[in-house]
């Protein structure tokens, strides 16, 4: 989201403060649109959860709470490393910055990897992919199918955000290695941090809404 070359003042701004405030406000607005986007899916989810509660519970019971919890911890840790990266950037510590960005990236990859290999692929194999491979029978099959539609939609959109975030992190690491950030000119790091925390928070909502319906420990 941040515009202008890192470490430099873009031609159309008066000073660095103005540039920084503009990119912060821009990022927050972008996150507001994201809230509305996820809010729309959550609204639809809520409607169907009300209509098909037993089916949603049945569907949810096919998810692995352990993997979900593991991924939650992974993401929370990545938020910590991201925050440390932002701090390193403002302090001008380049080595720390690169380390923490790389850690964040690694944790992000872990999350997506677990999601993809141990969850989605497993779901697909066991016939839990609506419209592609759906094998769940039983009285609540219809509700469970809708549950999985929302499960894949929500986690899919979330994972897409993760992948985009990972891509940005990779670019930032490259730029940091070339010394493109200064304590004053590290807008891009800070904005990426906001984005990363937001994606993290979305997961904090997704985990209980998808994994923890109707206790099944």
């Amino acid at each position: 989201m941040s515009d202008g070359r890192a470490g430099a003042l873009a031609h159309h701004f008066e000073d660095l403060d103005q540039q920084h405030e503009a990119s912060s406000l821009g990022m927050w607005l972008f996150l507001a649109t994201e809230v509305m986007f996820f809010g729309g899916v959550f609204a639809a989810y809520t409607v169907y959860r009300g209509m098909y509660l037993p089916g949603f519970e049945a569907g949810s019971h096919h998810l692995s709470i352990k993997l979900g919890a593991f991924n939650t911890v992974v993401l929370l840790c990545s938020s910590l490393t991201m925050a440390l990266a932002v701090r390193a950037a403002t302090l001008g510590k380049r080595r720390h910055l690169i380390t923490f960005l790389a850690l964040t990236l690694a944790l992000g990859l872990t999350f997506v990897g677990v999601k993809l290999v141990f969850e989605w692929y497993h779901d697909y194999e066991t016939g839990l992919a609506p419209g592609i491979n759906w094998a769940l029978a039983g009285p609540h099959s219809r509700g469970a199918e809708l549950f999985f539609v929302f499960y894949f939609t929500l986690t899919g959109i979330h994972a897409l955000h993760m992948v985009i975030g990972i891509g940005i992190l990779a670019v930032l690491i490259g730029m940091a290695a070339r010394g493109r950030f200064t304590p004053e000119g590290s807008n891009a790091i800070e904005m990426t941090g906001l984005y990363w925390h937001f994606v993290d928070i979305i997961w904090i909502f997704l985990f209980p809404l998808l994994y923890l319906i109707g206790a099944h420990y």
Partner: peptide
Amino acid sequence: PVVAVAIVLVGLERMFQVG
């Protein structure tokens, strides 16, 4: 963003025939 959600859901339903 909200109409975007609606269109995404229409697309999913049309592609995968999920209800």
